[in-house]
Structures are given as structure tokens and as C-alpha cells.
Design a protein around this nucleic acid. Structure first.
Lengths: 242, 242
DNA sequence: ACTTCTCTGTGTCGTAGCGCACATATATTG
DNA sequence: CAATATATGTGCGCTACGACACAGAGAAGT
């Protein structure tokens, strides 16, 4: 009991690592490692959700597809959170789709187990709900951001959010892909990305984007990035570190 | 015990009325009626939240103000829900503001009481969480809607959402006000409203808008209205009634 | 009745971003 | 090493919407 089976740094997911030892020990039997490939669909809109996923190195995009086929992202989940909140919120499904945006690993847990654990009502429930609130902030900010900010500002914000959930400075994604996330044309992304490249904030070739100057990217992004990041930090019970 | 102190139709708020008798009896001592005036600020961004509010005839807008002063709405709460979810989600505050958009009544409950009741974990918690998920859907849909749909479509959607939370066919609000909700210029609203009036879907004069043809408004609105409405219905455990 | 305010209508102009068409450059495959 | 597929660059016309400026038409106060 006094010796943890969990590596000192934790398993790599904030929610799991935020648990006290005893809480984690019970949960760990329910966790099963999985690997996600780029583009894999985690949940289909309205579809049955058999598991919740705690990303460690993977990250997952929450997006909505309109009747006419156009898409836009409303949230992004990395190792700070969990994919599948509807399972413990009581809705079972959601009208949006979840898609792997960065290949990598995660732990999954059966829907049933999650619901049981959630109902216990202790630290785990607390963590999950606080995370959910942070996600709500993220989605809310996306709503206003989509309305009020330019493609270029939003691209900066999006690159930063993605970079935060990635372990390298090189993101693997095409402009076409990004356009589906931002809900704009591919050419719009090309244009904005071109600008950022000529400012030496990023560089890219065929589906590989390198982040060159995070600081400047943050300066070019809209305020939304900072708002969401600070709220995530606050809800983790931390003071954001400079 | 067998005789309810609650009127047969309920108190007028879905969450409160969704509770079984015993659950409600305990809660009712904590509830205090309040009246909201149009434009009243319920919560300031980041401000202390002393109460949660269960609207009955009032409705409240959740909105965000950018640094440059422009605003946009991300959600709307009427008698189907509760204002102040951060209090039970564990965040205590949110970065957005809540403002009364339709004058009327509500019940309020002290933050502390709410947290205590929520922790009991029974039906009340269940209802609150399911409502929260519906709200998330609403905000999500607003995010994609803001990105992909025209001012006129969004105005239709917004009028319908507001009408759903109002007891009359006459809404009291200026175009200037609506423009702050939709995150567009006042002239943009004037233009769209003008169109809708010439199609005889609405009529208006100086801050009074009459809904003339709901059915057609729904046809002119984007799909977002229906998606959110159905999801609300589903999460109430009902089948949407035609 | 007169002034003042608030709300809505309208026009002009600038720009962001869309749709489409197509050129170019880099991978991948046979 | 072609041939083909994929990713990015670019130009053009169009539309929605922004910023600004001001006119007219109820309300509301004096």
C-alpha cells in the first residue's frame, strides 16, 4: 500500500495523476492502455460509447459535422482531460464526433466502470467535474472566438492549443485538416499559414508544421488562448506558471 | 408526506419539477423566490457567485465580453435549467457573465446549500448533470453555428430559442441588444430583421418583436436550433413531441 | 408643443473570406 | 523512373459583413 505501482511522474494524464494513491490503486485495475492512430474516430455522433478515454500522449478533437458536410471543432482534449464526458454526465451520447488529432496513447475504461466510480462521489468525481467545467470554458470561448476573430488569429490559437497537447515541436497535419477544424476553406488556412511562416513563427512542408516561435505565436493569437489556458490552470488548483 | 405543497403543475422550473416529492420537500426550504429585471447582471465575469438561480418565467443569457468590448452570447438559460453551474461543477466562478434577457421570476438557493445538496448524489445531482450536458450541447452548437451560418439564420434560431423561454409572442428587446448577443453589428440585425418582417415571420417596432410565424421561422433557421432542442428533450428523458 | 433621446432605416465604402479554377511542388506507387 | 496522388500556392470574382455617417420616426421629459 505504501509503495506505489504508479511511476513517480504519474501515468501521464492529469486526471488520473491528480488522484490520491488509494483512489488510483482502485482505478488502475479498470484501466487498459490503447493506442490511437491519426484520424481514428473515437466516437461517432450520437453513437454508443463503450469506453471513456484518458489520453496520455494522444489528443482528440471534438467536432461537429453539419448536414451539408462542413465541419468545425469545438474542443480539444489531451492529457489534461478525458474523452467521453457524456458517460458520467448521464447523457450516454453526444451529437458530436470525437476524432484523433494527434496519434498516441491513452487509457480506456469501460463505461460501466466509469459510471460506478463516478457515483462513489469522491476525489475522482470532483476531478472529472472540474475538468468538465474547464472544457465548458474552452467550448464557450470557441463559440465567441469563432464569431469575433480572424482566421489568422484563430490559427495561432489552434496551433498553440495543439502544441500544448503534443510532446514535440513538429505537428503532423495538413492545412486541409486544419481547415476542417477551424471551419474555413483550405485556402484560408494556406493564406494564414503563409503569413505566419514569413514572420518565422512557424515553418511547414506537406503536412509537417514546425513551431518556431511560441512566444510570438501567443502574441499573434487572440486573447481566447490565454483565457482558456488560465482557466484550465485555475481549475487544476494551480497557479499558472509563467 | 402524501400531500404535496407543490402545485400540481410544479413550480415552473424543469429541474425542480423533475424531482420526486421527497427530494423536492427537502429542497423547498432552501429556495427563495426572486424577481429579475431586464438587463440585470446575475453574475459578473470571474465574480463571486453567492447563489444559483432556477428561472421560472425569467431567462438569462450567458455571454462573454472581449477585451475590446465586443460581446457574444454562448448560451441561454430559461425555466429548463439553472444559472450558476460552476457552483456545483466545482469551479466557483466562470469567465463569462450572466445577464437577464427576459424579466421575470426565479428561485434562488445559497451556494453552500446547493453544494451540500449536490454532494448527496441522488436525483438532484443526476438532473443537474444531465442539464449541464444539454447546456454543453447548446454551447457547442453555438460555436459551430457562429462559424458556419449567416446572420439571418442565426437570428431566426435566436428568436426561436428566446421564444421558447418566453410565455408570450412578444419579445421585448431592441435590435442593438440582439446584436450584442449574436456578436454582429446592429445594422446587421436591422437588415436581417427587416427581411424576416417582409416575409411576415415577425413584426416589430422599437423594442417589441412579435413572433408571427414560428413554423416558417424554424424553416429559415439553421439546423442548430433543432439539434439543440432535440438534445434538450432527449436529456429530459422525453421523446420530443411533434 | 418643443426638445431630446432612443430605435430603426439606409447608403457608401472597405475587407475578409468563400467558391472555383488551376499551377506547382513533393510524396508514393507501379 | 514514369505515373499518380497529395499538399500547397495563387488569382479572380462574389458576397457577407464590418465601420462610419446620417436621416427619420416614435417615445419621453420639460
Amino acid at each position: 500500500m505504501s509503495v506505489s505501482l504508479r511511476p513517480a511522474e504519474g501515468v501521464g494524464n492529469w486526471l488520473l495523476d491528480g488522484l490520491p494513491e488509494e483512489g488510483f490503486e482502485r482505478l488502475r485495475r479498470e484501466l487498459e492502455p490503447v493506442t490511437f492512430a491519426l484520424g481514428e474516430v473515437v466516437y461517432e455522433s450520437g453513437g454508443r460509447m463503450g469506453y471513456v478515454y484518458f489520453p496520455t500522449t494522444a489528443h482528440v478533437s471534438l467536432l461537429y459535422t453539419m448536414l451539408n458536410g462542413t465541419t468545425a471543432e469545438m474542443g480539444l482534449v489531451g492529457n489534461e482531460g478525458v474523452v467521453g464526458i457524456a458517460l458520467f454526465m448521464g447523457g450516454d451520447t453526444t451529437p458530436n464526433r470525437a476524432m484523433v488529432q494527434g496519434a498516441g496513447d491513452a487509457f480506456r475504461m469501460k463505461a460501466k466502470s466509469m459510471q460506478t466510480e463516478f457515483k462513489r462521489g469522491g476525489d475522482f468525481q470532483h476531478l472529472l467535474l472540474r475538468y468538465t467545467q474547464a472544457l465548458i470554458t474552452q467550448i464557450s470561448q470557441t463559440a465567441v472566438c469563432n464569431r469575433l476573430h480572424s482566421v489568422e488569429q484563430r490559427l495561432c490559437r489552434w496551433l498553440l492549443m495543439t502544441h500544448d497537447r503534443t510532446h514535440t515541436d513538429e505537428l503532423q497535419m495538413t492545412q486541409e485538416f486544419i481547415s476542417n477544424m477551424l471551419g474555413v476553406r483550405r485556402e484560408g488556412v494556406t493564406h494564414a499559414a503563409h503569413n505566419l511562416q514569413s514572420l518565422h513563427l512557424i515553418s511547414y512542408v506537406r503536412g509537417r508544421i514546425k513551431i518556431l516561435d511560441r512566444k510570438e505565436l501567443e502574441a499573434q493569437a487572440c486573447e481566447c488562448y490565454a483565457v482558456v489556458k488560465e482557466e484550465h490552470a485555475r481549475l487544476r488548483g494551480w497557479v499558472a506558471r509563467e
